[in-house]
Design a protein around this nucleic acid. Sequence first.
DNA 1: GAAACCTTTTACCAATTGGTAAAAAGCAAT
DNA 2: ATTGCTTTTTACCAATTGGTAAAAGGTTTC
Lengths: 189, 189
Amino acid sequence: MEELFNYILQFGNLNQQQIDLIASKAVALELRKGEYFSEAGRIPRYTGFVLQGVFRFCYYNNKGEEITNNFVEEKSFVVDYQKFESKVASSEYIQAVTDCQLLVFTRKDWEELFNIIIGWDKMVAKIYQKCLLEAIDRRSPLVSEDATTRYLSFIEKFPSLANRVPLAYIASYLGITQQSLSRIRRNIR
Amino acid sequence: MEELFNYILQFGNLNQQQIDLIASKAVALELRKGEYFSEAGRIPRYTGFVLQGVFRFCYYNNKGEEITNNFVEEKSFVVDYQKFESKVASSEYIQAVTDCQLLVFTRKDWEELFNIIIGWDKMVAKIYQKCLLEAIDRRSPLVSEDATTRYLSFIEKFPSLANRVPLAYIASYLGITQQSLSRIRRNIR
DNA sequence: GAAACCTTTTACCAATTGGTAAAAAGCAAT
DNA sequence: ATTGCTTTTTACCAATTGGTAAAAGGTTTC
C-alpha cells in the first residue's frame, strides 16, 4: 500500500484522511501468468496499480497476428484509462505476463473519490498523462530504426524486462518475428 | 476565432465572459513554409491553435537523420505541451510544412486563464489528452506492419496530407527511405 | 525420469527494404 | 523560355528481414 502512495503523492498532496479514504477502497488482486486483467470487447472494470509482476497490452491485427504494444511493470497504473473512464468496451487485452499482484479500484469506488477529494481529478489527469507520454516515448522511436537498434532501444527503456518476458512478446512489440529477434540477440553478444 | 471555440467547447462549457477573455488573449500569427514554430533547445514560448496549414514535429537521431514523428493539421492545438507547461527546453522542432495561420497564446496569458476560469485546467487536460491519444493511435500501428501497409495506414489517418506534404517527410514518419516510399506509391496504383 | 508441451535457436531461401547514384519532373526567379 | 534549385522517380545491387521448417533447450506434469 505504501508503494501506491509513494507513487500517487508525486502528483499532488493528500492529507491523512484522504489517504485513508483511498486506501479503504483499494482491493488486493492476484493474477496468474497468462490471465487477463482486461479483455477486448468488455468494458474495463477496474483501474489497477501494479505491486508485483509485468503486464502487456496486446491486440490482434487483420491477419490474426497478436501484437503487443505496451508493457507495464511494477509501481505503475495499468488500465485502458480512456475506455475505463468512458465506459466503452476496450479494443485490446491486458494480460499478466508473469504472476502479478495488484491493488485495484472498482469504477464505482474510483468515481466516488473524484467527488470527495478536491483536486483528485487533477492528480489523476497528471498520472494518466505521464503514462501516455511514457508509452509514446517508448513506442515512437521504434518506427524509424532497424530491428537491432529497436531491440537495443527496448533494452534501454525496459532494462529489467528482456529476461522476464517471452521473446515472442518482445518481438511483436518491436514489429519483427521471433526468429529475427533471436538472430539479433545472437549477433549483439 | 470561431473555429477555436468550436474546438474548445467540445471539452467543456464556457460562458460568454470567459469566451471573451480567452479571445482577448489570442494573437494571430502567420508562418511561412519552412519556418519553425518551436525549436529544439528552446523553451516553447507559445501554445497555438492551427487555423490554416500543416505542421510537423521532427528531431534528429544520432546518425543526423531528420525524423518526423507527428503531423498536425487545421483545427487542432500545436505545442510541445509538456515542455511548454514545465518551462523546459524542447528536444524537437515544430516546423510549418505549408504557409500557416495560427492563434497563439503566450505562456503568461495562458497561465492567467488557469487562475481566472474555473475548470479551464480540466478542459486543457482533456484537450491535451486527446492530442496524445491521437498521436499514439496513429504512430503505434506503424511499428508492426510492412512499409506498404504503413503507407496505407498513413493515408487513412491523414487523408488530406498525402499530397500536401513532401514525400521525404512522410517517408521519415513511416520509417522508410524516400526511394522506398516512391516505389510503394508506384506499386499501389 | 519420461512424456508432453512450450520457447528459443538455427538454417535455408524468398521477399522486402536500404544505399548510392542518376534521371526526370516540378517549381521559382530571372 | 532558360536557368538553377528542389523534389520525386527509377535503377541497380547489397543488406536486412520474413516465412517455413526443424532442431535444441526448458518447463511442467505425471
